[in-house]
Structures are given as structure tokens and as C-alpha cells.
């Protein structure tokens, strides 16, 4: 562990921010995509269910959780692209803190996710979603969502380090969708066949979505899921953070 972890990580974070400044369109696209999904599910599919008002209250927290899960793809893509660029050789041949490359990435991605949450919450409010959980519940829910995103981020970094090549990301992208939808983000497990409902209930993302619904005070929330929404991401982090750092240090072995 180097004494320069923080300064080096900050330098690497600023590198990502400089990338944003140079490619604002990409940033906007990544913010618009979840909004598009929300509108699609809210109006096209929710409209078909003719329970729009109540469904929006169910859907928005689910979409927030889903967006955090899908963030894994972006992280993974960015890390594999970085690994295949020449600049990574320079970073690795310099006396900087090894983990700064990864920590800088995670800080930038967290910032982007926080902005994404703000945008999505704003659109949700415009669609008629009204959280009822009060200020404390609201902040707690946002905290759980970001914690979940942080865990997904390090899962994504580890997957990227294992996959190594951008082509492999496509395979993971295809897998992320069923995992994301095999949750209670969009539909309640009560409406599913028993075995499927059981799978869905155990999906860590469902835990976060249920806890967040509870904290927002909307439909689909159940008491007692907040602890699971804290523990699950921490378990994922405890496994994937050290794996990813070790893997990065071991590049070239």
C-alpha cells in the first residue's frame, strides 16, 4: 500500500473527468438511456396494465435499482478498453499506487451514477411518482442504491480484468439483462410462477429494490429488507474488491 493512494486516485479520477469534458455527448447518452427505459416501461408497458398511477410508484424505485445494476456494463467496458490501451503500460511502469487506476475509475463511475440518479429521480417525479418515506427514508434509499452500484462496480472491474478483451464485454452485457430483469424491478414476484418468484426474491438486486421501496414508502416495500440491501453489497465488495486489486497487481505475471 503506497502513501500516495489518495493523491494518485484523485489524479486518475480527474483523468476520467477530463474525458467527460472532451466527450460530453457520451455522458449525456449514458444519462438518457435509463430515462428512456423508464419512459418505455412507464408508458408503453405500464399504460397497457392500466394501473399507471400505482405502477409508477412501484416502477421508479425498481428502475433506479436496475440502472445501478446496469452500471456494471459501463464500468466493465471502460476497464477493458483501458487495459487494452498503451497508456496502461505507462501507469504500470510508474511509481504510482497500483490500485489508483481502479479507484480512480470507481470514483468517476460513482459520480456519474449519482448524477444519473438525480436525473432519473427528477424524471420519475415529473411522471407523477411521489415518495412518501420522508427525508430520512429518501436519503437512506439513495444511500442503498449507491452502495449497490459500488458493489456492482467492483464486480464489473473484476469481470473486466478476467475477461481482458472488449469483445468479452458483449457476452457479459447479454447476461446482465436477464439478471437485471430476473428481479422485482419491474414486476412483483407474487405474479410469477413459484420457482421463478423464489429466484427473483434471492437476487441481490431485488433486495435493494424492495428495501428502497420500503424507504420511499411506496407499494412493493416490505419491512426487514434494508439489512439485506446493506449486507449483500458488502459481501460482494468483500469478495470482489480484493480480487480485483490483486488481479490488477498481478498483470504480467
Amino acid at each position: 500500500m503506497s502513501a500516495y493512494v489518495l493523491t494518485d486516485s484523485w489524479t486518475m479520477t480527474r483523468r476520467e473527468l477530463a474525458h467527460w469534458a472532451r466527450q460530453p455527448v457520451q455522458v449525456v447518452v449514458s444519462l438518457v438511456f435509463p430515462v428512456m427505459l423508464l419512459l418505455m416501461f412507464g408508458y408503453l408497458i405500464g399504460g397497457g396494465r392500466a394501473v399507471e398511477g400505482a405502477y409508477v410508484d412501484y416502477l421508479v424505485p425498481g428502475m433506479l435499482a436496475l440502472t445501478m445494476a446496469f452500471g456494471l456494463e459501463g464500468t466493465m467496458l471502460a476497464v477493458t478498453q483501458d487495459l487494452n490501451k498503451g497508456v496502461i503500460d505507462r501507469f504500470r511502469s510508474m511509481p504510482m499506487a497500483d490500485e489508483a487506476v481502479l479507484v480512480g475509475r470507481s470514483a468517476a463511475d460513482m459520480l456519474q451514477s449519482a448524477i444519473g440518479l438525480v436525473v432519473l429521480i427528477g424524471v420519475g417525479l415529473a411522471l407523477g411518482w411521489r415518495p412518501q418515506g420522508g427525508g430520512g427514508g429518501f436519503l437512506g434509499a439513495v444511500g442503498l442504491l449507491l452502495l449497490f452500484r459500488f458493489a456492482m462496480l467492483w464486480v464489473g472491474i473484476q469481470l473486466a480484468l478476467v475477461a481482458g478483451r472488449p469483445e468479452m464485454v458483449q457476452a457479459v452485457q447479454i447476461l446482465v439483462w436477464p439478471v437485471g430483469f430476473l428481479s422485482n424491478a419491474l414486476a412483483t414476484p407474487a405474479a410469477m410462477p413459484g420457482w421463478l418468484g423464489a429466484v427473483v426474491q434471492w437476487n441481490p438486486m431485488s433486495q435493494t429494490a424492495t428495501a428502497v421501496r420500503e424507504l420511499f414508502g411506496g407499494p412493493g416495500g416490505e419491512p426487514g429488507h434494508v439489512w439485506a440491501a446493506v449486507v449483500w453489497p458488502l459481501v460482494l465488495l468483500a469478495v470482489f474488491f480484493p480480487l480485483a486489486v490483486r488481479r490488477f497487481r498481478g498483470l504480467g505475471r
Binding site: R15, A18, H19, K85, G86, D89, R90
Partner: peptide, 12 residues
């Protein structure tokens, strides 16, 4: 180190 491929951030 000056490697065979430019070790630079191409976007910056």
C-alpha cells in the same frame, strides 16, 4: 519507458 505503441491517453 517508450514502448512500441504510444503509452499516452489518446483522448487527452
Amino acid at each position: 519507458l517508450l514502448g512500441q505503441h504510444a503509452a499516452l491517453d489518446e483522448e487527452l
